[in-house]
Amino acid sequence: MKKAITRRFFFKKTSTAVIAGGAVVYGVAGVPLLKSKELLLRPPGALDEDTFLASCIKCGQCLQVCPPQVIDLAGISQGLGIGTPFIVPQQGACILCKGLPCVLACPTGALDHQISEGKEAAMGLAVLSKPETCLARKGENDILYELSRTTFETRLQALAETLTKLVPRLTFDEKKTISAELGLGNLELSGIPRIVAEMTPELFAWLKKYVAETEQTKTACRICLQTCPISSEQPIVFQAEKEANPESSKLNSVEKMRPVVQRTCVGCGVCEEKCPTTPPSITIVSRKKWQPQALKVKVQA
């Protein structure tokens, strides 16, 4: 009997030691092992990554108040920051709402209460990661590009999005011509669902052809600047390309421009979300700081 008791005693002590040891090992070794390699894009006002990870209480209140509902909470695949908020710009970018409700909601100051405006946020920096696909550099108009990729059968939803972009850019006469052809009273944004619903292959072909003749196609894509929530700060400046791109587009009158990211960019990610190319030519690098030298090197390269 004495032996049995000793064995039970031994097992009890062993299991205790295993659990206690496991906790210590997890605590000490877990941090470097589980820490996410790639920096996630945090909501505006986030402290530097290590302090942010330490000071976020993981309550999700920023997510609850986010008007465009773009904040998500990290899971196990995002490393140790389980429950911390992050944004994937391509699925929905931060629009730098007025008053920054996420920052106001943060109970711990992990999103720094010192900032009160979108232009003060320092989430990261936009980078022209794929200059070879950038429409501005190729001197291509974004609406033409999108329409050329839209087929009548497959992408009616995309057509609605394209038309939403197109309508405000048209001149009065162009609007009139289109509405006459489509049999509408007035061409307005609210009429787009009806246009899409009543679209026929013939009308679609006509629309494609007509849009190519409109005045707005004389300018290259500038979606990144046009959609930027802080466009008044000029975070992107278009500079003329020094050398003409050999694989240029058919419309020779369109000037080839290169978007250059300026110091005022906060890295909200709207340009990445709205960029017409897939994958986006402009992407956000989380936590990146603006550097003039690095930029110059990139322009020359």
Binding site: Y26, G27, K58, I82
Partner: peptide, 10 residues
């Protein structure tokens, strides 16, 4: 010591 809220993960 680690500067991270380790327990909150588990």
């Amino acid at each position: 010591f680690s500067g991270y809220t380790i327990f909150e993960v588990i």
